[in-house]
Design a protein around this nucleic acid. Structure first.
Lengths: 190, 190
DNA sequence: CGTTCAGTTGACTAAGGTCAATTCCCGTGG
DNA sequence: CCACGGGAATTGACCTTAGTCAACTGAACG
């Protein structure tokens, strides 16, 4: 278990004393490429953690256009937090972009942890805070900057994205069409 | 104190048993129109709560253009959560749009509450979760919809905004110029 | 080899940005 | 009570950029 703690502890934000209690609740699952962790219309029942691979969440609008909400890489959490918290049907799809190993924490198990002791409430608070900070960054990006600037920001801050993610999905993540992203790239490099 | 609980309890998300402990930590302050709760470059030291009046948070970009991040009305919390959590200098300004009564909770006092008992960790978790859900809605709005659609969404979901907030600030909140908002309104009503 | 799909490119449209002028509104002081 | 000043909102003319639709290219894969 110490081995597992060394492997995951830092990414889970738990100390060694509490690690095992959490780790024993996790189920390991492997998703094949394009398989789903969550489909629109379902209630989200799990907190997910990427062990290896890549996931994406996206929304399909009324015209059938996919809007990429986010990408998730190694050692990061993903879920539809809104669906979990509000116990509502999700409007997101969450899908593996390649063969992806994930760890699942059942929502009820998480809530049982919360009831056990202050430590887990704190764990939940810190996790919610981190998720919020990510969301705030995304708002700033969308609100403050032009599409072109969002592209150059992403290039600088997450170059990994451009190695692992098809360009049309990146375009959607940036809030533009694939054609526009192609033209922005052309504009910048020439 | 029961009177105060009836007045604020529901908005604070605390039960009656814990209300007094929180309420006694609050300082009441009145901001005159255009006065600041927080200025860019400062560290945010307080969690704020609007008792009556209106606040806004905004960012000034490298060209000196104001970008309205959010508005806050009666009985809502506001702060730069990022500055508080990360202990960093804020890049936001938070300002009263009219004479506004606010209640302040010192960041250290909040953190002391967290250490006291699980109840306050849970309080912090629930607050962070709520703040996140708001942020997620904002991302969805900016990512999924056109400026015109964002305007009609706002009209539907927060008509109050149009009674209390100058149009040029609403435009900025929507991520467009005042001129564009004026034209969108014109386009829709004629 | 074909098929498929991502990415690019072209031609055109639409929508928002920019700069400037004008109008409207409101508060203040004569 | 009116005149004036100042900022908000609107409007016009024009520019820039993203969206749309369609054609084409190229790489991946059976």
């Amino acid at each position: 278990m110490t081995e597992n703690f060394n492997k995951y502890g830092a990414s889970f934000f738990v100390d060694e004393a509490h690690f095992e209690e959490l780790f024993l609740l996790l189920k390991s699952v492997t998703l094949k490429k394009n398989n789903f962790f969550l489909k629109s219309g379902e209630k989200c029942k799990y907190l997910g953690f990427v062990e290896s691979g890549t996931m994406r969440s996206y929304y399909i609008n009324e015209n059938g256009i996919e809007k990429n909400f986010d990408f998730y890489f190694d050692r990061n959490f993903f879920t539809d937090y809104e669906s979990i918290l509000c116990n509502t049907k999700s409007n997101l799809n969450i899908q593996a972009l390649e063969e992806t190993k994930i760890l699942l924490l059942n929502k009820e198990d998480l809530q049982k942890l919360y009831l056990k002791e202050a430590y887990w409430q704190e764990f939940g608070r810190v996790m919610a805070e981190r998720i919020f900070l990510n969301a705030k960054k995304r708002i700033e990006d969308l609100l403050y900057y032009s599409p072109e600037r969002r592209y150059t920001n992403l290039l600088k801050e997450a170059p990994l994205v451009f190695e692992k993610i098809p360009q049309k999905l990146i375009a959607s993540y940036l809030g533009i069409t694939p054609q526009s992203l192609s033209r922005i790239r052309n504009r910048i490099t020439h």
